[in-house]
């Protein structure tokens, strides 16, 4: 049977289609500066979505990531500001701050994971709860306003988002590395295999001597760490965090995972598909901004159509089997 498997190739074809569309509508689209912008912007959601792929593949869900990112950005900025008098305005402070973001992410992910696996509460409920908690905490820490990074630190830290190897800025590099490692881990390691097995049928996995609870917990911790990594890249961009940071990131990340062909019910994870999904979502935004194709009121509608289409394609594959 030589029919093209839309399920696997559909997202990639859609991505290429968007590229061609963008290039036709506005030559500025293909300028390295624009592509660099789009890729770097995608990096936050992209890193989170890679972690989310593992969580969804094992049959879980995490709604708290957007709030978690805001919260981590908040405590990172506060930690860095507090360290300035002690360590000074230098890379030392920044590296310590990065450690706060990463450890904070691991801890937040552990809290989610432990509540889900050890206290055995539904993932949806747990992360709906922590979503509200993280969001409130950052608003409270910021006193309802905005937490801003010390301006001296800011200028040292800034290149982490804006710098890099020419047009290939650090966020793009980190995103690419995470994608490659993520795909490899899903496809070629015991961990990835166990994640897929649990999502496919957790009872079979348990009977097959897989430590189901530990693997599940690990996916949430991994996701938390990736949210921390995303925060490390996010903070130098605007040097601030507030109650409105990272709003709806969780849904964008989940949407990217689904567009990429990972089944929402778990059991089959595609990290590279997730990467394609993230790029599709950012490219739509970018193209709509670069052209006057449709009313900006309709941006959300176009993304919605793409998400539903992606799921329809998955369905077609299943009935064809």
């Amino acid at each position: 049977m030589k029919r093209i498997d839309l399920h696997v190739w559909g997202p990639l074809i859609a991505l290429i289609g968007l590229f061609i569309l963008g290039a036709i509508l506005n030559p500025a689209f293909l300028a390295p500066a624009n592509l660099s912008n789009v890729l770097a912007r995608s990096a936050f959601i992209g890193l989170i979505a890679i972690g989310m792929t593992f969580v969804i593949t094992q049959g879980g869900l995490d709604l708290s990531v957007g709030s978690m990112a805001a919260f981590l950005a908040g405590i990172t900025i506060m930690a860095m500001n507090a360290l300035v008098p002690v360590v000074g305005e230098n890379w030392g402070t920044i590296i310590l701050g990065m450690g706060v973001a990463l450890l904070g992410g691991v801890a937040a992910g552990y809290v989610n994971g432990a509540l889900i696996t050890k206290a055995r509460i539904e993932a949806f409920i747990v992360t709906l709860g922590t979503m509200g908690i993280f969001r409130s905490l950052v608003t409270w820490l910021a006193d309802g306003g905005t937490l801003s990074l010390d301006s001296g630190l800011r200028s040292i830290y800034r290149p982490v988002y804006f710098g890099g190897l020419g047009w290939i800025t650090w966020p793009i590099i980190v995103f690419a590395v995470a994608a490659v490692v993520g795909e490899w881990a899903m496809r070629h390691t015991r961990f990835g295999r166990h994640v897929e097995a649990i999502g496919s049928n957790d009872r079979v996995a348990r009977y097959s001597a897989v430590d189901v609870e530990r693997v599940r917990l690990t996916t949430y911790v991994l996701l938390g760490a990736l949210v921390g990594l995303a925060t490390i890249l996010y903070v130098p961009r605007l040097g601030s965090a507030s109650g409105s940071t990272g709003v709806l990131w969780e849904l964008e990340a989940i949407a990217a995972v689904i567009i990429g062909g990972t089944a929402l019910k778990g059991g089959r994870g595609r990290v590279w598909g997730t990467v394609v999904g993230v790029l599709i979502l950012s490219l739509i935004d970018n193209i709509l901004n670069l052209t006057d194709l449709v009313s900006p009121y309709l941006n959300g509608a176009i993304q919605g159509v793409i998400i539903v289409l992606a799921v329809v394609l998955q369905r077609e594959k299943r009935t064809a089997e």
């Binding site: 912007r41 901004n289 900006p296």
Partner: peptide
């Protein structure tokens, strides 16, 4: 041009990047 930045720093950053490219 007029696009929605939603009174949000991140959204405004993205929209402005695109304006500058365009």
């Amino acid at each position: 041009d007029m696009q929605h930045g939603n009174w949000n720093r991140d959204d405004a950053f993205n929209v402005m990047q695109d304006y500058l490219a365009k």
